[in-house]
Amino acid sequence: MDTTVEKKYKFGMVINLDKCNGCGACAVACAIENNVPPAVQKMNKRNGLTWLTISTVSNNEQYPQSETVFVPMFCQQCEKETPCMTVCPQNAVDVDPTTGIVGQVPQRCLGCRYCMTACPYHARYFNWWDPEWTDGMKQQLNPDVAPRMRGVVEKCNFCHSRLHSAKDKAATLGNREINPADYIPACVESCPNKAITFGDLNDTTAPITSLASNSNSFRFLSRLGTEPKVYYHSKKHWVRAMAEKAQTRSRQADGIAEEEFHG
């Protein structure tokens, strides 16, 4: 038996908010790739199923100073003290020691939603409904991703099926290490503006590593100390300040992102 220790990857992303125009292609690609069932009639923004949401944040200035950015938000793959992992009572969540990807096994999930409470990014989603596909859509399901049942939690895992495929391909060629070009998550691939950079943060030569350590790159809620592996990037000062600073919030009737912010 081969006992070679596997390479330790640390997959991460950098999202350039200055390039993102909020088109939503990433969200659609994500849903198709990962067999996220279509919305049922009674669904709303808050109880629907998505692995990736896009929020609109504006600086609330008057024209011509007014500016808006779109923030794609999904599992931030926390590296340390991963909040969702430690709370799960039955080990349905883990951090893959070889890739750093936070995995969620829906078949082990009890549906207690404690992990959703624990996640500061609200990047975990619960199947409130039975998943329903029309016959035509059933034909298009991705065979590499198991569909989830009602009553379990699911979330982004950096298109893990694509990592499987990349590993398979490498193995056929007798390689242990994947070819970085073979593993690109659906959202990264689909972004028309190439706003998302994906790669191995342990690889010092990869473009992502220098981009992540760029002074214009930041992470949300970094002071919580969970070391997320999804970075955001913006040259605009107010965007970086917005991410750093907790805001005085006011209650609004609508649950989504229009926010009073003075940059």
């Binding site: 038996m1 081969d2 006992t3 596997e6 070889t98 890739t99 096994v105 991703v145 198991a146």
Partner: peptide, 14 residues
């Protein structure tokens, strides 16, 4: 385990 492979859940689950 016998072969010192370290995996996460999603290494073998899809």
């Amino acid at each position: 385990g016998d072969n010192n492979r370290r995996d996460g859940c999603v290494s073998c689950h899809k």
